[in-house]
Amino acid sequence: MTRIEFYVLPDSEQAGRARAACQLASKGWQHGLSVFIRCQDDQQCNELDELLWTFRAERFIPHELHGVDPLAPVVIGTEQPPASVQGLLINLSTTLSPHTDQFSRVIEIVNQQPELLTVCRDNFRLYRQRGYDPKRVEL
């Protein structure tokens, strides 16, 4: 069964979620997992694409937008199904992915922004209703 984790950041800074996504994508890729970063919209996809180019000066994180190369080690997209199954989904969207079962692990990144906390609490309950056992991880 897919492992679901909610990584909780201590602040409400929106950029912190993007940096955490980059860090997690780098770790997942280094551990041999295919990584799909699911964004809210195309603008967030493009912003994350730019951030991944500059995130680590000493190490390149091989990534691409889904429309360009859905088989890249780290793929950035929205609602597209993953080209590789059993990888890592990093969900920055406010909704659950319709492709959750195609991943071995899903990470939801939460910060202290009140609206996002409310949405993520609802998503936590939805995962439980669907038979998953989501965990909370404080960062």
Results as ranks from 00 to 15, higher is better:
residue 8 V to Y: 02
residue 116 L to E: 08
residue 113 Q to C: 01
residue 67 G to E: 12
residue 87 G to F: 03
residue 21 A to Q: 01
residue 44 Q to R: 13
residue 62 P to T: 06
residue 56 R to N: 07
residue 125 R to P: 02
residue 28 G to C: 02
residue 45 C to Y: 00
residue 94 T to L: 11
residue 104 S to M: 09
residue 65 L to E: 04
residue 62 P to K: 07
residue 111 N to R: 06
residue 82 P to Y: 01
residue 80 Q to F: 10
residue 106 V to I: 14
residue 69 D to K: 11
residue 87 G to A: 13
residue 20 A to T: 08
residue 136 R to Y: 05
residue 55 F to M: 00
residue 2 T to R: 03
residue 114 P to F: 06
residue 22 C to H: 01
residue 138 E to T: 10
residue 81 P to M: 12
residue 139 L to Q: 15
residue 4 I to V: 13
residue 76 I to N: 04
residue 18 A to D: 11
residue 56 R to S: 11
residue 74 V to L: 07
residue 25 A to C: 13
residue 15 A to L: 14
residue 58 E to T: 10
residue 38 R to I: 07
residue 118 T to N: 10
residue 2 T to L: 06
residue 96 L to R: 07
residue 111 N to D: 15
residue 49 D to N: 09
residue 76 I to C: 10
residue 71 L to F: 07
residue 123 N to L: 12
residue 126 L to A: 06
residue 120 C to K: 03
residue 39 C to V: 05
residue 116 L to Q: 15
residue 39 C to K: 09
residue 111 N to G: 02
residue 29 W to E: 15
residue 51 L to Q: 13
residue 90 I to L: 14
residue 122 D to V: 03
residue 48 L to K: 08
residue 125 R to Y: 04
residue 115 E to I: 00
residue 123 N to G: 06
residue 89 L to I: 04
residue 26 S to L: 12
residue 102 Q to L: 13
residue 28 G to I: 04
residue 25 A to M: 09
residue 55 F to K: 02
residue 92 L to R: 06
residue 133 D to Y: 13
residue 23 Q to T: 08
residue 133 D to H: 14
residue 118 T to I: 05
residue 120 C to A: 10
